[in-house]
Simulated assay, not measured.
Amino acid sequence: MFETLAAAPPDPILSLIGLFRDDPRPGKIDLGIGVYRDAAGHTPILRTVREAERRLYESETTKTYVGPAGDPAFCAAVAGLVFGEAHPGDRLRAVQTPGGAGALRVLAGLIARSRPGVTVWVPDPTWVNHISILADAGLPVRPHPYFDPATGGVRVDAMLDALRGAAPGDVVLLHGCCHNPTGASLTAADWDAVCDVITSRNLFPFVDLAYQGFGDGLEEDAYAVRLFARRLPEMVVAVSCSKNFGIYRERTGAAFVLATDAARAAVAHSQLVVVARITYSMPPDHGGAIVRIILADPSLTADWKAELAAMRGYVVGHREALAEAFRRRTNTDRFDFLTTHRGMFSLLGTTPEQAARLRAEHAVYIVADGRINLAGLRDDQIEPFVAAVAAVCG
């Protein structure tokens, strides 16, 4: 049965987990896997999550299935968080999913059912799993310019020019905020221009909103989604609750479909449920229940927003401290782009060979493409990390 199979290549991000764990060297630094860590290097459980779990434990009476579409109350709560006052009402439908990746996969499956073989434009670079998910759904991918390694910014004009050359009906995959892996994000004015091109070329937006609240704030990070909801007839949105609620292992997300009218939204939703049923049957409910409880209680919501703001501020502080440490060490401003990036990640500009040397010679673990997780860096690791990068990169 398996004699024709070749070994799968190691995942460039997840493979670092085992390598780091088995490294016996003291002072090793893990900036690979994308999780938030506090000053002690620990990924904490938020106090609001603890309280929601306590309430759930006391009130839950069954472990029966929630159904392929998941919990409607959870979907409604996340819809309010994402769409805000731009909530498009009956034109919007959702299913609860196993994390943001689950949302991406069922939405890719829905697109493949709706328009088999349609081209999906993705930023260069993009999250590595985007390519795998789209390929698994049978959707061809075409890259468009995005990141400028020379400036650490977005090649907005080149991106817009490329999308102007897309065929009507093509799909455009967009990072709603906090671009992964680069950290270079579009401004509100940039999003306005992107929306203009999508409208003029009759393109279909597929938004991945994985880090709402980790960039500039909950409202600010939802700008693109809300803009599209106001101006465009159709789109799909994949949402993750992993980062902003800190419930990574609970695999909690939602897939949203916006259609031209309520009737088409209902049809699209029925097909989305079929894809979900085929893919994983039913979503896990524990994480969704946590989110629902938090968002249903104004006091818990306010406390959760405060916790999220503290995590965001911690990462921003590390960006500033890291850029300053690089200025002192290199006597240049070549790493100042770190302060303009948003979210957990940045592309440092190292080569795969330099990333390998950082791991082998300095016990510093970063992804081969140079992505670093700022949320995984402790205060006492900033100077050793900068020294290691300077030693390897010159």
Rank of each mutant, 00 (worst) to 15 (best):
T252K: 06
R93T: 10
V66E: 08
D208Q: 04
V275P: 04
G370A: 05
Y36W: 10
D336P: 09
I33S: 07
E361T: 07
D303C: 11
A390D: 06
Q381P: 03
L203D: 12
T43S: 15
D192S: 12
T182M: 15
L358H: 00
Q96D: 04
V35D: 03
Y146H: 04
T48K: 00
A135H: 14
A276Y: 05
P116T: 03
A101V: 12
V171H: 11
L203F: 11
P116C: 02
E85T: 09
A262M: 05
I366E: 07
G165I: 02
T351G: 00
A238Q: 09
F345W: 05
P384F: 05
V120C: 09
P44W: 11
T279K: 13
E53P: 02
P283A: 00
V207H: 10
S185A: 14
M282H: 14
V78N: 06
R319H: 10
T61G: 15
V273W: 11
G18T: 13
A323M: 00
A52C: 05
D170M: 11
R21H: 04
G109H: 00
K243G: 08
A262W: 06
F204Y: 15
R249G: 12
T260V: 07
T199W: 02
G176Y: 03
S185E: 08
L14C: 01
G288A: 14
I294Q: 13
T351Q: 08
L232Q: 15
L56C: 04
A355Q: 03
F147N: 02
A321D: 12
E219W: 03
T62D: 15
G176W: 01
D136T: 11
P125V: 12
G18C: 11
D216W: 09
L5I: 11
R230P: 09
G349Q: 03
L163M: 07
S15Q: 10
I198H: 02
G394I: 04
D170F: 03
N331V: 09
T64D: 15
D216Q: 09
T4H: 12
I293E: 10
V316F: 12
V172I: 04
T64H: 11
I366F: 07
C241L: 06
D22Q: 15
E85R: 13
V35G: 03
A268T: 02
V128K: 10
I198N: 03
D38I: 08
I290N: 12
P125S: 10
R21W: 02
A193I: 02
P352A: 09
N202Q: 07
A263G: 13
V141P: 01
R249F: 12
F206R: 05
N331P: 02
A73P: 10
E250V: 00
F206D: 01
V315T: 13
G370P: 00
I293V: 05
V122G: 00
F206T: 01
P26N: 07
A39M: 03
L107K: 01
A162L: 08
C195I: 14
A112T: 08
Y36K: 00
E361H: 04
L209K: 08
C241R: 00
S240Y: 04
I290Y: 12
D71G: 05
G27A: 06
T339Y: 09
H179T: 14
F335M: 13
Y280M: 09
V386C: 11
D23N: 15
